[in-house]
């Protein structure tokens, strides 16, 4: 009896499991086929250029010889390059902190305006982010112009001496940061506004009854509830700001004395204008590990919080 049963079980179970496997195989095949166009796009637009850039960075200046990590060695010993590293980090970190702070403040202000009036303000505050940056930077370039500077004209009204906005290294650094903040803060504002709207009102009410002042509600409810959006926005903005090109190119072209160069503008100068494409590729790839580590920690934190809270 037992033998006949044990013999019957595989006979029944086998075709069922194999048909299930077939179905699973078919579903995954369909899924693969459906994502194939996207995979092709990613391969063509991300993987291939990245791989090609890595390959380029390992060639000699004439691109006729494989030299391994020599281009990176040369960069590490180059003083100008370390100035670029410093300026890129200073520019990105300062600009992102300023954008995050101003964006948060604007979002908070907008959140407390009644919905009807809010739309108008939201539209107006988004204008800097909507205008193509190369175009708006030209406007700023005029405002910073040593002869026609409207900013200096305003300062003169208050008897403040004219500022050499783009002529003096530190002022030039501050000037490019101001333009980047002006351009990028609306992005933070709109992201934070969406995050603020997603915090349940009842949490604030519960906190108010628990005895929290408005500052404590911000500290203990708003900020922790927005932590994921803040992290992702900061990460995204940091990557974009590190890779910024147009603002510096239009405003200072890296000057004075190469002190406002960022990775992207320096890579362009070395690779395209000076004709050393492998060195340029090495410059542009230099920040990759730095950003990858940063992204890893931020995304790990986001995942962890998501698991705990959602």
């Amino acid at each position: 009896m037992a033998d006949s049963m044990s013999a019957a079980i595989p006979a029944v179970a086998q075709p069922r499991s194999s048909s299930l496997q077939k179905l699973a195989r078919r579903r995954s095949s369909i899924a693969f086929l459906m994502t194939l166009p996207l995979i092709c796009v990613i391969l063509g637009l991300v993987v291939y250029p990245a791989g090609y850039a890595i390959y380029l960075s390992m060639l000699s200046r004439r691109m006729d010889e494989f030299v391994g990590l020599t281009q990176y060695d040369i960069l590490i010993e180059n003083d100008t390059f370390w100035l670029v590293v410093f300026q890129s980090c200073f520019f990105a970190v300062t600009a992102v902190i300023a954008k995050a702070a101003i964006g948060f403040w604007l979002a908070h202000m907008l959140h407390h305006i009644p919905t009807k009036g809010q739309r108008k303000w939201r539209g107006m505050l988004l204008v800097p982010w909507v205008i193509p940056p190369a175009l708006s930077t030209l406007g700023w370039w005029w405002m910073y112009d040593p002869t026609y500077s409207s900013l200096n004209w305003i300062l003169a009204i208050f008897a403040v001496p004219a500022v050499p906005w783009l002529g003096e290294p530190w002022w030039a650094r501050v000037s490019v940061i101001i333009v980047n903040v002006w351009y990028g803060a609306p992005f933070f504002m709109i992201m934070y506004l969406a995050a603020l709207k997603s915090v349940p009102e009842q949490l604030y009410e519960a906190a108010a009854i628990d005895g929290a002042s408005s500052w404590q509600r911000l500290r203990y409810i708003t900020l922790p509830m927005m932590q994921n959006i803040i992290s992702i926005t900061v990460l995204f903005s940091l990557i974009v700001t590190f890779a910024n090109y147009d603002i510096v190119r239009v405003l200072t072209n890296g000057g004075p004395r190469d002190l406002t160069h960022l990775f992207a503008t320096y890579a362009f100068q070395v690779g395209i204008l000076s004709g050393n494409i492998p060195r340029g590729a090495a410059v542009s790839l230099f920040m990759l590990p730095l950003l990858a580590i940063f992204a890893f920690f931020i995304l790990r934190g986001v995942n962890q919080r998501n698991k705990e809270m959602m």
Binding site: P200, Q202, L203, A206, A208, I209, A212, I221, E308, M309
Partner: peptide, 20 residues
């Protein structure tokens, strides 16, 4: 008097627990 100074406690329909 603001809610924090009324010395009351409230239980909400959706609990309103702080998720973090």
């Amino acid at each position: 008097v603001p809610p924090r100074d009324r010395d009351i406690a409230m239980v909400f329909q959706n609990y309103a627990l702080y998720p973090h």
